[in-house]
């Protein structure tokens, strides 16, 4: 039977974003992309600005530290720190997948959970250390 004669099977297509149920590796993947975009849009300029302000003088270094103590700034910073750590952890996972380590379904799921958990735990540790 040629391709054209094959009966058309109507398969369900779920492209509705609120209906899509991503598997764990899929969640890690989309978070990797979102965190990367956030680091490009906000992380890099904020980092450059902070380094510039911190190097100007001891006073500006101190006032930068004071700005960090503001709850709203804290929230943004914690978000970006998580973005960096998640991007790092998920990236390390991809390097392992690149060399065909842990590509079976079960270890791929397990490493996804590890990436999510480790990056969250490291975010908490860094947050506690900074404040």
């Amino acid at each position: 039977m040629s391709v054209s004669e094959r009966p058309v099977v109507k398969r369900p297509v779920y492209l509705n974003l609120v209906q899509i149920r991503l598997p764990l590796p899929g969640i890690v993947s989309i978070l990797h992309r979102i965190s990367g975009a956030a680091l490009f849009l906000f992380g890099i300029p904020l980092l450059l600005w902070a380094v510039q302000a911190s190097l100007a003088s001891a006073d500006s270094f101190a006032s930068l530290k004071a700005t960090w103590a503001h709850p709203l700034v804290k929230l943004v910073l914690i978000g970006l720190i998580w973005a960096y750590l998640h991007h790092l952890c998920a990236g390390i996972r991809y390097l392992f997948l690149d060399v065909h380590t842990g590509i079976e379904l079960k270890p791929a799921r397990q490493s996804s959970i590890i990436v999510l958990a480790v990056s969250l735990a490291l975010t908490v540790i860094v947050g506690v250390r900074l404040w």
Binding site: R33, G36, A37, L39, F40, I44
Partner: peptide
């Protein structure tokens, strides 16, 4: 960042 943003 260039490679990642271009992919997006």
């Amino acid at each position: 960042a260039w490679i990642g943003m271009r992919d997006i």
